[in-house]
Lab assay of single mutants.
Amino acid sequence: LEELEQFARTFKQRRIKLGFTQGDVGLAMGKLYGNDFSQTTISRFEALNLSFKNMCKLKPLLEKWLNDAE
């Protein structure tokens, strides 16, 4: 759980530094990986307001997006 919290904080910082909005991330993930995510989902991930199971599902996709975006 602590690792997920740390990743969520780091993800938000890096996303902002790269100049992407939460909506940009959701749209890009849909185009790149075929998984559409709303701005609300990205927001809830960053705020740790998703279930642990959903956080675990999203983490690898967000890590991949972040690596591809950098």
Rank of each mutant, 00 (worst) to 15 (best):
Ser38Glu: 12
Met55Phe: 06
Leu18Asp: 01
Ser43Asn: 10
Trp65Ser: 02
Gly23Thr: 07
Ser51Gly: 10
Ala69Ser: 10
Thr21Arg: 05
Phe52Gln: 07
Tyr33Glu: 08
Glu46Val: 01
Glu46Trp: 00
Gly23Phe: 13
Leu62Cys: 07
Leu66Glu: 02
Ala47Arg: 07
Lys31Asn: 05
Lys17Glu: 08
Asn49Pro: 01
Pro60Thr: 09
Glu2Gly: 10
Leu66Tyr: 10
Lys57Phe: 11
Leu48Ser: 14
Arg44Tyr: 11
Trp65Thr: 02
Leu4Thr: 06
Arg15Ala: 00
Arg14Ala: 09
Glu70Phe: 04
Arg9Leu: 08
Asp24Cys: 05
Pro60Arg: 07
Glu2Asn: 15
Leu27His: 10
Leu61Lys: 14
Gln13Val: 12
Asp24Ser: 07
Lys59Ser: 06
Leu61Pro: 11
Ala8Thr: 09
Gly30His: 12
Asp36Phe: 14
Glu2Val: 09
Thr41Met: 15
Met29His: 01
Arg9Val: 06
Gly26Asn: 11
Leu62Gln: 01
Glu5Tyr: 05
Pro60His: 04
Gln22Ile: 06
Gln6Val: 10
Ile42Trp: 01
Lys17Gln: 07
Leu18Phe: 11
Lys53Glu: 13
Ser51Ala: 06
Arg15Val: 01
Leu32Val: 07
Asp36Gln: 10
Glu46His: 00
Leu61Ser: 11
Ala28Val: 13
Phe11Met: 05
Arg15Asp: 00
Leu61Val: 09
Glu3Gly: 05
Leu32Pro: 04
Gln6Asn: 05
Met29Val: 13
Ser38Asp: 15
Met29Ala: 06
Phe37His: 07
Leu48Gly: 11
Arg15Gln: 00
Asn35Gly: 15
Leu58Ile: 15
Phe7Gly: 02
Arg14Glu: 05
Thr40Glu: 13
Asn35Ile: 05
Asn35Ser: 08
Phe11Tyr: 01
Leu27Asn: 12
Asn49Gln: 15
Val25Tyr: 00
Asn54Gly: 12
Phe7Glu: 02
Gly19His: 07
Ile16Thr: 14
Arg15Met: 00
Asn49Trp: 03
Phe45Thr: 00
Ile16Cys: 05
Lys12Glu: 05
Ala69Leu: 11
Asp68Glu: 10
Leu62Thr: 02
Leu18Ala: 12
Gln39Tyr: 15
Leu18Asn: 10
Phe11Ala: 05
Leu61Gly: 07
Ile42Tyr: 02
Asp24Glu: 07
Tyr33Ala: 09
Ser38Cys: 12
Glu2Lys: 12
Arg44Ile: 00
Lys57Ala: 09
Phe52Gly: 10
Leu1Ala: 07
Phe7Leu: 03
Gly23Gln: 08
Leu18Pro: 00
Asp68Ser: 09
Val25Met: 03
Leu58Cys: 09
Lys57Ile: 05
Phe37Arg: 02
Lys31Pro: 05
Val25Thr: 03
Gly34Phe: 04
Lys12Ala: 03
Asp68Thr: 06
Arg9Ile: 15
Thr40Ser: 14
Glu2Cys: 01
Thr10Leu: 12
Leu58Ala: 13
Ser43Thr: 10
Gln6Phe: 07
Asn35Cys: 11
Asp36Cys: 06
Ser51Tyr: 02
Glu5Val: 10
Trp65Met: 03
Leu1Phe: 11
Leu27Thr: 07
